[in-house]
Every structure is written in C-alpha cells, then in structure tokens.
C-alpha cells in the first residue's frame, strides 16, 4: 500500500523519504519512485519495532525534507491465529509492529508536525480493528489498539495546526495477503492509495478504503456477540 502511495506521489513529482526494514526492497521501491519522477530525499533502513530509534529517524527525515507535508505510517504484519498461538514470539511481533511500534511512531511524528505547525499524520489501521474476531484476534486487537490510539492522539493534537487521519482498508491485494483467496470485495493497492492521498489532503479524519467498508463495518459492529461466535467469523 505504501508503495502504491509512493508511486502516485512520484508521478506528481513529489519529494519523499522512505523507511523500510528490508534494505533490498527499500532500494527496489526507491529506484522505482525515482524513475517515475520522485525526488528521493533519503532512503533509510530501520526496524520500526525498535521504538528507541524513532527519534533519530524523525530527526533525519525532517532534516532531509525540510517541511514535511505528510507522515504515512504503513507498517503491518499479518499472521494466522493458530501460528501466533504456537509461537508467542510471532504473536508479539504482530502486536508490536501493528500496535506498539506504529502508535509510538505516530506519537513522535505528531509532536514533530505540531512543532512545525502544519502537516498531516496518516496511520494505516484496518477494518479488522473495528470488530475483533476469532479468526484474526491478535492482528485485530493490535489494529483496534492502533485505531484507538490515533483517536486519542487526534483529540490531543487538536488546535495545533495538524491533522491525524486514520485509514481503515478492507481486503487489499498486497504481498501481506498473497496467500489468501481473492473475491469481489478485494481492492487494488492503487485504489487504496488514492483514498489515502485524498484523505491526507482534506475530508474526514477516519476513512475506509474503499469507502463501502464503512457500511460493511457498521453492520459487522452491530452483530450480536453470540452470532459472531456462532458464525465462527
């Protein structure tokens, strides 16, 4: 999803700094963005689970870019619940990457933007966090936590010249979901990227991507608990 956002920014001739854990993949996405017209301020390899590194990383980003318009937090790990139950270390990674790392990076980035007096923080959460189910409870709980954190951060930052935007994608055909069967509700990363960039510019602070997920989740949230259990969703 982040890659699709970078492509759209690149085609418009924007300037970006990219951060990723895998240096090879970072280089591949960076080269692609450059050829498509982006100015690359910096490419930085970092493990965002190591929250102690966030401050230095943001220092470097704000130094490289000058004024920052948008900070996009798009890290995510998905794992099946049974795998997480077998391997607590994997469960920890799902919770840390999706929730703790993402939330603390959001907090630090929001404070920098507030100091700058402008800009938008966009966090990619998930519809999975709107109603946590048995089939993805570690991931869902982490995303629920991240959504809630952003909700509070938004209140806290009000009046400081910045926006905090939560994007909740539905099913997206990305490497994270490569192993899953696709149906009619699946969206392309590029379509979701369009929603992310529009939301970063103006409009609601909590957006679903694509928008029809707002209605679907309204219904899913309204399901009584006994039915959710019975359906084994």
């Amino acid at each position: 999803m982040a890659q699709a956002v970078v492509r759209r920014v690149a085609s418009a001739g924007g300037e970006v700094m990219l951060v990723a854990r895998d240096p090879e993949k970072l280089r591949h996405v960076g080269d692609d963005a450059r050829v498509r017209g982006a100015k690359i301020a910096d490419l930085l390899q970092a493990d965002l689970d190591l929250v102690g590194g966030h401050a230095a990383l943001l220092d470097r980003a704000f130094a490289a870019l000058g004024t920052v318009d948008v900070v996009l937090i798009a890290q995510g790990v998905l794992a099946a619940p049974e795998d997480c139950e077998r391997d607590p270390a994997l469960a920890e990674r799902v919770l840390v990457t999706n929730m703790v790392g993402a939330a603390l990076l959001a907090q630090a980035a929001a404070l920098r933007l507030a100091a700058q007096g402008s800009g938008t923080l966009v966090g990619i959460s998930s519809v999975a966090g709107d109603r946590v189910r048995g089939s993805n409870y570690q991931y869902g709980a982490a995303k629920a936590g991240f959504s809630a954190f952003l909700e509070g951060l938004r209140c806290r930052m009000s009046g400081r010249g910045i926006r905090v935007v939560t994007v909740k994608p539905g099913f997206v055909d990305s490497p994270m979901t490569a192993h899953l069967a696709k149906g009619p509700l699946w969206a392309s990363p590029d379509a979701v990227a369009g929603v992310i960039l529009r939301a970063a510019e103006r409009g609601r602070d909590v957006v679903y991507a694509p928008g029809y997920w707002r209605l679907i989740m309204l219904a899913v949230r309204a399901l009584p608990r006994w039915l959710l259990i019975k359906l084994r969703l």
Partner: peptide, 18 residues
C-alpha cells in the same frame, strides 16, 4: 505481474531497465 517496478531510466542512452 507484481514485479512491476521500474529500475533505471537512462535518457541519454535511451535505455529503460524494469
């Protein structure tokens, strides 16, 4: 199909790597 990244564009030599 997901290998859809450009790698380099050399306008002087008219070479595109993708």
């Amino acid at each position: 199909r997901s290998l859809d990244r450009f790698i380099a564009l050399d306008e002087d030599r008219a070479l595109l790597t993708c």
